[in-house]
Structure formats: structure tokens, C-alpha cells
Design a protein around this nucleic acid. Structure first.
Lengths: 212, 212
DNA sequence: TCATTTTAGACCACCCTGGTCAATAATCAG
DNA sequence: CTGATTATTGACCAGGGTGGTCTAAAATGA
């Protein structure tokens, strides 16, 4: 919708988007200051209202922008076919890590306005979010042909499932915490996934049937 | 220090403390509004500055108040003697749940100003926090006579340790999410802990040596 | 009764708000 | 080059919120 804005060169767009995302994520909608945004973005005050009509217009644009990234860089890439629960969750986890390190501001922004509670959102954004949420649920849990026979017999597979999910989640949070505000260097990634694989191996050893 | 304030009856003190905790936790120090606080607490504007000298004075009081609760209702109660890692973490987890449901505002407040990043705190509060942090670390991990022999031999005990921690953490977060903004009814607690015990049993089955 | 302590909220000077707009700079068409 | 169109700036606006003060009244106590 903001055609004027879309015509800008990428560098400037990015500066504005990031300044705005940061301000909204930190302060919330009401407390966010357009003055701060223009100062941080290094543009004149008038331009923000020339590109987007109002504060609300800017906010809507940011919501769409962030949801699109979430969709394209994450949701659409989730594989649907794996039967090995741990492998599936691991690959999702890796993608999520990539998403969060490559687009930290967008994800913080979405976190603030969707995951956190008690914030009213425009109808359109809520709809879009609910769609995406439904898709993600379907992709991750939907086609429940998870191979339960992989699990050992003496435990409740459903509960084991949750425990594994939480454990992997915990590792991811730990990882994200370590890389907070750092840009991830390519050469750091491989040993990280090695470590991750160690953890996954333990989970398999413990929760799956032992061969032989 | 705020003697005037301490002489008030408990109900009024509580109203003021809770209004202030909520405002600070939601908006952060700078953005928090003393006007909002007095309105929410139902007292005249002047009183806040009569009890505490300034906004900063109020904030310091809240920090101490919350840290004290954390200390007395949680840290000092952590048992130091258990060797069974899972049992120990489980009991800590239960206490933490109690702490968070009985003092949600205090814990949100502390979360905002300690766990969240990039907020400067007064020197005294930082010291107090670091002490408490050190104590908690020592209590939880310090006397590392955790009985590693309980773990099965074919996995790295250190890593298993972390996985268990994350899993239990995940369950707790799930629980806290379910009870967000609800006061926990006593009759709801027991079945909850039954469920928790189920999860713990699975963890033991999977990570500990099998008997016989 | 009168002195002391609590209380309320009007008031202060100041700062920041989202948004406008007139003046200017840059770009483009012919 | 000219003249029109577009992009850009920042001073400016009315309105509202800021932490904090102070007067005057109410409550309390002796």
C-alpha cells in the first residue's frame, strides 16, 4: 500500500523499517514515538507521514512485513513428511534459529504483539496471524502420522513427545541467548549443530527403542 | 526507609505496591507514570511523594520488596541435600510455581528489570541481586555431589542434566501459562502435581539406569 | 481545644506527542 | 535549459502527560 515507500532504495527502507521495528518492540504501540523513529532512521519527520499516512499505517506495514518474513523464511520451509519426531523437531528448530538470527528485530516485534498478551491488534492482522498459526499447527502437529513405534513401550508417547519438545525448545533458547545481539559467523554454526546433534542423540537413546 | 509508608494498614500498602509494580513492569522505569500509579491505587497524587520521596525512591522500595520476597519465599527454602537430580529439580520447580502464582506481580517486576536486558539499575540493587544470584547458583548447582551414578552409562551425564532441566522448565512454563492471571484454587493443585509426577517418572525411566 | 499528622488534587513549568505545511531540493520531461 | 512534478526537511501546532510542589482541608491525638 505505501507505494511511495516501496520505491525507495533498499538501504533506506531497511533503515526505516529497523528503526520502527525496534521502537515498537521496545515501547509498544502507544508509547512508541514517531520522533524517535525518524531520528533513529535519519530521515526528516515529514517523510514518515509521506510514506505511510499515519503511525497506524506504519504499524500495519510492519505487521505485514514481519508476518511475511515469518511465512516465507520459516513456515513455508517446514518439511511435512518426516516420521521421526525428533528429527522433525530438530530441523524445525534449526530453521527457527536461522529465522531468529537473521531477522531478530522482526521476530522481537512479532513476539511483542502476538505472543505477549493483552494487546489489541487490527482485525486484518489478527486474521492473518490466525491463518498463519493454523498453518503452522497443521504443519508441525497436523498430519499425525508420527511414528509412535519409535518410542520405547514403557512410557506414554504423548507425554514423551512434550518432554522432547520442551527440551529442544530449551536448547534453542539457550542458543539464542548466547547469540543475543551478535551476528552469527558462518564458521561458528557448524560446531553448534554438532553440539545440537549430541543432544539429539541422547534424546533418541533415551526415548526411542534401543535397537537389538 | 519510607517509615510513613510502612505505618499504613496492609490493605492500602498492598494496593499501592501492586499498582506500582504493575505500572513499572509494564512500562519500564522511564515510561512508568506516577499519575497512573496513584489513580490505580486510589490515592491522592501528593501521598506517593509523601510516602516515598520521589519516583526513584518508590522504585528502590519495590526492588527491595520484590527481592526480599524472592529470597524468603523461594531461595531460603531450596533444599541442599538431595542427591537425586530429578527429585531436586522437581522440588525447586514446585516452589518456583508457588512463588510465581502467589506473587505474580513481584516476579514480573523482577523479570522486567533483571532478566530482561539493557536496563540500568541502581548500584545497591545490582549488588543485592548479584548476591542473591550467587546464592541461588550455589544452592542449585553448587554442591555438585549430584549422584551421577543414577544416570545410565551410555549418555553424557552433563548433557542429560541440561536436557532434564530444560524439559522441566518447559513444563513449568506451560503450567504458568495455563494459570496466567488466574488465582490458583487449592483443589486444582493436586491433580496438577500428579501430572507433573507422571512426567518426572518418564524422565527417570528414560535417563536413569533401569533397575534389575 | 488546638497542635500535629494525613490526605487530596489543583497547579506548575516543562517536555513530548502525532501530524501539518510551507519552503526548498532533487528529479524528470520535453 | 525550462518548467513541472516529486521528494525532503524541520519549524510549528494544539493538546496532553511529566515528576513534583503546595495549600488547604480533614483526621487524629492530647
Amino acid at each position: 500500500m505505501p507505494e511511495k515507500f516501496l520505491k525507495l532504495d533498499e538501504e533506506k527502507k531497511s533503515r526505516i523499517i529497523h528503526a520502527a521495528l525496534k521502537e515498537f518492540a521496545e515501547k509498544g504501540y502507544e508509547q512508541a514515538s514517531t520522533n524517535q523513529i525518524v531520528k533513529q532512521a535519519g530521515i526528516g519527520k515529514g517523510m514518515l507521514f509521506y510514506y505511510f499516512k499515519s503511525k497506524e499505517g506504519l504499524f500495519h506495514y510492519l505487521l505485514n512485513h514481519s508476518l511475511d518474513i515469518f511465512n516465507e523464511q520459516y513456515l513455508s520451509l517446514i518439511p511435512e513428511d518426516s516420521n521421526d519426531l525428533i528429527e522433525k523437531m530438530a530441523s524445525i528448530s534449526k530453521m527457527k534459529f536461522k529465522l531468529y538470527t537473521e531477522h531478530p528485530l522482526e521476530m522481537e516485534f512479532l513476539g511483542k504483539f502476538f505472543v505477549e498478551h493483552g494487546l489489541e491488534l487490527p482485525e486484518t492482522a489478527r486474521k492473518k496471524y490466525e491463518e498463519i498459526y493454523a498453518i503452522s499447527m497443521k504443519k508441525i502437529f497436523g498430519n499425525n502420522h508420527i511414528d509412535q513405534s519409535l518410542f520405547r513401550d514403557d512410557i506414554d508417547a504423548e507425554k514423551a513427545y512434550r518432554l522432547i519438545e520442551w527440551a529442544i525448545q530449551g536448547y534453542q533458547n539457550d542458543l539464542l541467548e548466547r547469540f543475543r545481539n551478535k551476528t552469527v559467523q558462518i564458521e561458528e554454526i557448524e560446531p553448534m549443530w554438532d553440539e545440537f546433534d549430541d543432544y539429539l542423540a541422547i534424546l533418541k537413546t533415551c526415548f526411542y527403542k534401543q535397537k537389538g
